[in-house]
Design a protein around this nucleic acid. Structure first.
Lengths: 342, 342
DNA sequence: CTGAAAGCGCTAACAC
DNA sequence: GTGTTAGCGCTTTCAG
């Protein structure tokens, strides 16, 4: 267990100064072809690679980006991790992962993140307190929230960026489809009361219902959790006057609802009740579900997130809020046309 | 955008030396209650926290652990990420995440990892070349492979650790169950030809079949991929003499097979064909599938991984290979008793 | 283009 | 217990 070779060692072997070694490993530094060759040869011999920590200490750029997440049981987020890390890796950054407890404000973890001098932070499905948003801004560490926005949206220039899909508009689409297909007693399962995604989807949904001169039949909260969504479904369908249409704030819960509806309550979907989810996770397309849903377009969301963060890290851009359109994906949990008896 | 306060600044404000500041932030260093109080007060005023990079440079311990993964579409791995990061966080480590392309050897990414002076490496569902395994060992960076073992298993003292479940024994269980329940034309869908999980599960399965004086009816490779598993299923059931029992190397593919069997081929499970998966991912329990499967017991696997790594990082332990038992989970894709006509 | 020298922010001897 | 000092491995002036 020998210790790793240092620039000094390479310099000695190549018979050049240590700074020459540094320069060969610094893109865009001026070194003669001759020295570069010697250094590279010596480096290869020793298996030398620059110590990223020491480099960061002096350059004040760690090339590390923190990614804060929760809800990994919702398959949407693994996809986010996968794509984000790959894109960030390609851009020359490395990802420090933090799992935040669901529903807690991620403040504790954030202090630790900052200790590592990260160049930027991505918060996905995690809430950032305004206080910490400020201290990040003060330190010049850009933050982009993914799929979440801060409470006082729109009020004044926010200091942190966000990338979300058009949740409200997605909610509207769901409402329109359900009504158009002849469902009349329409209920909703919300996600988390304090999550902007859930709030916005619900608002869009109920607003559009109002436009169509209908009212929400009933409402329960599923906390973006599989089991709790099943309980919510049960409660929704416990009374005599059962709903016949259901909008669920995400696919993960919609699938839970579907299982409950079919296996436990012996209801037929889409005949007895129509169901719409949100996200379009891979499972929504699985043969046993074929869930009609509102798609969040992951790729442009990732693109925007990485672009936004990178530009802010290089100081090219100020914080911004980006909204990516949603699209309705019709599969088999909403009927194709209103029942002829209607 | 002010720059972060340094220990120097705190020292000045508290009217003590800079080393006093360092000591108050070093657990187990000797500082009088008096100084400690002054330093803490000053630190709070300025919002000081030690720079982890600078600290690591000198202590030669970064408290960073690298986690290399792929296959995030298999829900087993998001769970692994979630649990591992939480446990590592609790142990005072931070997680640098890398997504490796499926099927490539993760050598490229590993060099970058080592640049960051990580204290340890966990490779989950990713293959490490023996060459790099050696260079990690040389550098004194412990590696534990999660759910994968190196090719030349058993031969001499390996330099890196592994945590796996008893894949072979799991495969045997599957074979026994299928035969016991009267299935006779038994086929298999393998994962990846070069993945130890797939190889071992298959070996256990066919070996046990042999013990029971049966032979594998047919075999296809699904590459641990949803779509390719569906194609494999199609091929398996294309001929005249269809299999009536199917062991699939993981749940992710088993679900794909189930969809294909029921939706496309109009076969009844478990009547026409019995299906067994491997892993027991959350989706296997979903109402629409209720997949009979071999459970990998995640918690003890995580425990072992974290314990192993931590002990090796502190030098308490040499590399080891740990194998966690599997358990059969019966649900609804294998019939309860052999058909009476048999 | 190259080497010498300073120093990033911190910890760890070492004297006192 | 405390301050002083010497680096950790590297980048970056600054002369030459």
């Amino acid at each position: 267990m020998k210790t790793a070779p240092r620039a000094q060692d390479v310099a000695a072997l190549a018979k050049v100064s240590q700074s020459a070694v540094s320069r060969t490993f610094t893109p865009g530094a001026s070194v003669s072809e001759e020295t570069r060759r010697k250094v590279l040869a010596a480096a290869k011999m020793l298996g030398y690679r620059p110590n990223a920590l020491a480099r960061s200490l002096i350059t004040r750029r760690s090339r590390i980006v923190a990614l804060v997440m929760s809800y990994l049981d919702n398959q949407f987020y693994p996809l986010v991790i996968e794509q984000l890390s790959q894109r960030l890796q390609k851009a020359g950054y490395h990802v420090l992962m933090f799992i935040a407890e669901v529903d807690e404000e991620a403040d504790g973890v954030l202090a630790e993140i900052l200790d590592y001098q990260v160049d930027g932070i991505i918060m996905a499905s995690a809430n950032l307190s305004p206080r910490l948003a400020n201290s990040c801004a003060d330190l010049g560490v850009p933050v982009v929230q993914f799929n979440r926005v801060m409470e006082q949206r729109g009020r004044g220039r926010s200091k942190i960026s966000s990338v979300t899909s058009a949740n409200e508009s997605g909610g509207r689409m769901a409402a329109r489809l359900l009504v158009e297909r002849g469902y009349r007693r329409i209920a909703l399962i919300a996600g988390l009361e304090n999550a902007s995604t859930s709030i916005e989807r619900e608002r869009g949904f109920t607003d559009e219902l109002a436009v169509l001169e209908m009212r929400l039949w009933n409402r329960e909260v599923g906390h973006y959790d599989f089991h709790r969504a099943q309980e919510a479904t049960q409660r929704l369908f416990a009374g005599d006057e059962r709903p016949d249409g259901l909008f669920v704030a995400n696919d993960h819960m919609a699938i839970a609802a579907l299982d409950m509806l079919r296996q436990e309550l012996n209801l037929k979907v889409p005949e007895d009740v129509g169901v719409i989810g949100f996200d379009d996770v891979p499972q929504a397309a699985w043969g046993a579900y074929r869930l009609t849903t509102v798609r969040q377009d992951l790729e442009p969301m990732i693109d925007a997130t990485v672009a936004l963060l990178c530009q802010q890290m290089t100081g090219e851009l100020r914080p911004a809020d980006i909204v990516v359109p949603c699209a309705l994906v019709e599969r088999a949990t909403v009927r194709q046309r209103p029942p002829s008896t209607a």
